[in-house]
Every structure is written in C-alpha cells, then in structure tokens.
Design a protein around this nucleic acid. Sequence first.
RNA 1: UCCUCGAUAGCUCAAUGGUAGAGCACCCGGCUGUUAACCGGGUGGUUGUAGGUUCGAGUCCUACUCGAGGAGCCA
Length: 427
Amino acid sequence: MSIKRIKDYVNQEITVQGWLYNKRSSGKIVFLIVRDGSGLVQGVLVKSEAGEALFALANSATQESSVRIRGKVQENPKAPGGYEMLIGDLEIIGRAEPYPLTHKEHGVDFLMEHRHLWIRTPRQNIILRIRSEIEKALRDFFHERDFILADAPIITPAACEGTTTLFELDYHGERGFLSQSGQLYSEANAMAFGKTYCFGPTFRAEKSKTRRHLMEFWMLEAEMAFHDMEDSLQIQEEMICYVVRRILEKHRADLEHIGRDVSKLEGIKPPFPRISYSDAVRMIQESGEDFPWGEDFGAPHETLLSGKFAAPVFVHRYPAAIKAFYMKPDPADARVVLGADLLAPEGYGEIIGGGQRIDDPDLLEQRIREHRLPEEAFAWYLDLRRYGTVPHAGFGLGLERMVAWLCGLEHIRETIPFPRMLHKIYP
RNA sequence: UCCUCGAUAGCUCAAUGGUAGAGCACCCGGCUGUUAACCGGGUGGUUGUAGGUUCGAGUCCUACUCGAGGAGCCA
C-alpha cells in the first residue's frame, strides 16, 4: 500500500511499510509519522485502545526505524495531508540507532557527508522524484517521435572535442577516457537509424567549482539525419515544452511544496525567442560593458541575456573560433557557425548546446588538422562523410541543469542522488 | 588554478585575550490531538592540524588541511 494513494482507502484497514519520519507523544497518545518514499502519513495510537504493550512499543520507536503499521484510514483536518491511520498493529522491523539528521537545520557540508540519508528527507525526495519524471518525459518524447535509443560508449579512445580535461584510465595498457560527450557516436547512429538519441552519464575533469557544475552529469543527446539547424531548434522547443507540461501536470503540488513559483513555468510556450550571437553582443554592449565581438560569454553574460526573456532563449551563430571543430559554417557568413545554445530563464544558464554538423569530408578533415586532433582517432568519424554524407544536426541537454531550473534550485548538487563534485566523491 | 569567507558538543550556533555555553539529538521522568509538540532532569568538548606571541589563546600571528560562495571552462 502506497501512502500516496491513501485517500482512496478511507474507512478501510490498510498496511503501510516504511520508516518512522517523526514521533510525537504524550502520556496516553502517540503520533507516528511514517514515510514510505511516496509520501507521509500520521499514525495515531491511543493507550486505552491499543493496550500497554503496543503503546510502549510505539513510544520506544526511534527516528528512521523501519516499521510496518496496520490500521484504519480516516479523514482528519488536523493530520498532515488531511488523512491519518488509527494504528491497530505495529511492527518494528529494524530499530534505528540515533539518527544523525534531526528536524532542525543542518549545514551543507554535513548534509553532503550524509547524502545517503539526506535523500530520505521530503524536499530532496520530491526533487529526485521530479528528476525521475523528467527523464521519463524525455524518453517518451523521443520514442513518440520515432527516435531510436542508441547509447554511446562511456569509455572512449580519444577526446571528443579535444578541448576539455578528461578523466583518464588504463584500458588494459591503452589510454582510455571517460566520455565527455556521446555526440560523435550519435552521428554514426544517426546515419544508421535516421533519428537517434542517447542518454547517459558524461564526465568532465575540469576543476570547476560552481553551483552549476558536476564532475559527472547526465546528458541527453539527439542526432538527426537530414535535419538542419532550424529543424533541430524546433525539436528542442517542442521537447522543453513537452517536459514542462508533463511536470506541471504530474508534480504541480510537489513544485509548490518545495517553493517553486509555478507561474514562471506555465508561461513556457513556443516559439522561444531567437537572437544571434552578434545581437547578443550588442545587448551586452548596450548594458554598458565593453565586450568585444568574438569572445565567449561568461555566466554573468548569460544571466543578463536570459533575464530579458520569460521563456528560454536561443542564441545562435556563434563565431567559429569559440565552437567545436565539427560545427558547420553559416553559408551566409563564414565567420560564424550554424550552432545554437539554449539559455534557461531566471539565470539558470545554458541547458542545451547544439547545431548543424559539417557534412563535407574535406572541410571536416581540414578542421581536425586545424584543431591538432589525432587524425587516426577520427578516421571512423570521417568515414561518416565518405560513405553517404547528409546534412545532419543535433543537440545535447544537460539533465541536472534542467532539473535545477524546473525545481527552482539554488545548487545543482540537489538534482542528482549522489553528486560527484570537485574533491567530493563520498558517499 | 585564482579571489573572498569559514572551521567551537553528534547537529545548528554563542562566548571584550581571563573558569567553554544554549537549543536540538540521545537517556530518565511528566503530559489524551500532537504539527520542527511541550515541561523537568541527565550524558556529551584535546575549540580543524602544526607552530608562534602572551603571565594567560576558542579569541592575536604564520603555515597547512578541509569546506562554502564566486570566476574561468562548460551541459
């Protein structure tokens, strides 16, 4: 019996299995607040009705002990959630030792050290349940549109884009790296399946230490043959709206419970505003900053730009020099590429990066040389252009940033059960 | 890697350079509708580490360790 469905069982006898979240007692009545991962329910036990032995047992239960309670469900406005159980029987399955996490405030350091217990608390529990639904919505979105899930390898032989720092490992005597992106493999998959996506963990070894970074994060990467940048932007737009709609539909009360202003999400509708990199530079300059064309935006710039719009905003056609080697140049202006980032509102920054890929084999080869990438490692990638090249485009969505935005979180560490952060690998 | 700030009881925090305290947790007792329940009592400390200044250091100085916030890089 899941606590979430308790309202369907009024006046019926049910059994709930869970953990003792909290207990309040007086001499002749005791309240046991039990959680089971789906919600909380208050169990009531009156001494005169339950008898000495059962009453003493209930009084002795410690916080987070695992319990099984049986009793009749009844409506009661005084109970949290509006329903409670009159306990007829109680079994303590595993008595908990003194529990480190009290119902008072704790510091971040302490909570992170006890992340394995912190995820039991209501707020963390809600966030991670929303994450679960976001992942499911994303998968539903792509499967409804006939995308094939084709996962990319996590252990790779070379840097994907050649720029960022990777985690290196010994692959039976060869050098291996933890993947920083599945994109190149997704391109191969797109040539095999047409429309594909992959969804898995991604690793960055940079010593980033901000509220927006993790060493290990989950990225959904879609790649579509016979699609250009415009097609890709439309799919991104639809995808974001699909997920927002789903979360509002299934988790509105949860969002409100964790203090999210849902009106900010209700306004998320297509089409999203689109500005070019050059427009964005102009907007930054108009704000009074001396920002040269050709430089990449920093976090404060992204916040400034996204702050001008209520919906997520696409920034497209970045200078080729600050983007990855595989980005296709804009035929109308060779200085820029057909790539776009999606900036989430409210200062949440970049949640998607994507664009159209180079489909010409000679240009791609030239770019690989210009970027001084190991040519042998990219031989297979060039093959994709040699054997039936097509215009294609794709994008990568950072799951944790999406969760942070939808839930309105200050810090990305709360968006994943066990965040891997700089110098933090326990628990 | 850089900048700023911090580290005192299991937790959250106090303590003019002069005897280390409170609330919560835990243990004991009380209370028939609690809402982070409440009331009374109790247990609990090498003040992050190492050194220095001083009659005397939680407090001042130096180094280190760990952490937080931000920057850069990125999703």
